[in-house]
Nucleic acid binder design. Structure first.
Lengths: 135, 135
DNA sequence: CTTTGTGCAAATTCTTTGCACCAAA
DNA sequence: TTTGGTGCAAAGAATTTGCACAAAG
């Protein structure tokens, strides 16, 4: 599906900048920070400002089109894959991996008196394979 | 157990400030921010500095004595309860609740090729009971 | 003594805000 | 033409750093 149609599904008016950001998120599934997105797009769009990246991602999150991940204490990270999956953050290299092959039960929203649960976030941390070999 | 003995278990040398911070975290299980901890303790310890709170909590996290929660995008929050439990953050009032009565399976560390999992963080968000009634 | 912790001020980093200009319907 | 989007500069907030003094063993 074309990206501007995809954005409309979330009630987001497409613009050149918004389309470029979503395109980036969907192409490079690296859970990028604002800075990484800006650094990548900036050469192609010389007038692009970081404020627009902030505006765009805040809008995307508000509309439910992307997830803001809390896995990195320093910077906000974003993920355009809104299906059920967990994340693993390597304490050594800082890379964030997707974990798709987990039981769906882990993402169930428990029925709890007094809580209306909308979202579930499951995060693991530890050492990744490539860092483990190094030491 | 006395707090300074508890700290020693984590290889943390007790000091007046460190003991006070751990005491606060264990007494008020409110997942406080750095600022909240500082504001509470400051009247009792007039020379206390916020830098010391930062130093102390970074040390506690490094030694595994407290958890740094990523559930609040704005500020880091801390929890001295390192047992398996999840958190719920109300999107409306911002309060963070503990969820203890969940299945232990949710906190299992999956065996995955190439990942050495140390920690599990499970967070929910939505609307809490007291906010739901208001609207 | 010697090592380690504390606390002030300054620096850094991340994010938001105010506002003028631009673009699209 | 009118509404909404973009982008610059400045402001704001959270955290870290450098360094001198204090405390503890």
């Amino acid at each position: 599906m074309q990206i501007h149609h995809y954005l409309k599904q979330f009630d987001i008016k497409p613009s050149v900048q918004r389309t470029a950001v979503m395109d980036y998120l969907m192409s490079y599934k690296t859970h990028p920070t604002i800075d990484e997105i800006y650094s990548y797009l900036s050469p192609f769009m010389p007038t692009l400002s970081k404020t627009t990246i902030y505006n765009t991602l805040n809008l995307f999150v508000e509309k439910g089109a992307v997830l803001q991940l809390a896995i990195d204490e320093k910077n906000a990270r974003y993920d355009a894959d809104i299906s059920n999956h967990a994340h693993f953050k390597c304490k050594n290299c800082g890379k964030v991996y997707d974990l798709f092959d987990l039981k769906q039960e882990l993402f169930a929203k428990p029925m709890l008196e007094g809580f209306d649960i909308h979202t579930v976030e499951l995060s693991y941390s530890g050492i990744c394979g490539s860092c483990k070999g190094m030491n």
